[in-house]
């Protein structure tokens, strides 16, 4: 598999480490959220047959975390973004 890194261009998937669903970006606030909310955040995932947003880490590279949108049926990669940009766009800051 080849991941088109937004900064470094096409890179082999072997350089990356896979984490999982990009919903992990949406971590609840530990000071206000319930155990149930954290349970859902930690354990519940959609198992989509089709486009899937997921986190990849360029460990053998520039250490960027990426959000890769991949079709799980064909492995076609539809979009690759810096996770930091995605996190900011989703309202995360400090």
């Amino acid at each position: 598999m080849i991941i088109n890194h937004p900064i470094l261009g096409p890179r082999d998937a072997q350089e990356f480490v896979y984490l999982g669903d990009a919903s992990l970006i949406q971590r609840p606030d530990g000071m206000t959220a319930s155990i149930e909310a954290f349970h859902d955040y930690t354990y519940l995932r959609d198992n989509s047959a089709g486009p899937h947003r997921e986190l990849w880490y360029h460990e053998q590279g520039d250490r960027s975390w990426l959000v890769v949108t991949r079709n799980t049926l064909t492995h076609e990669i539809l979009k690759v973004e810096l996770a930091r940009d995605v996190a900011r766009a989703e309202g995360r800051s400090r």
Partner: peptide, 15 residues
């Protein structure tokens, strides 16, 4: 190290 980068980039990108 991987986990810290995740926290820094994905959870609190503006720290």
């Amino acid at each position: 190290f991987r986990h810290l980068e995740f926290c820094r980039q994905c959870l609190w990108p503006d720290l």
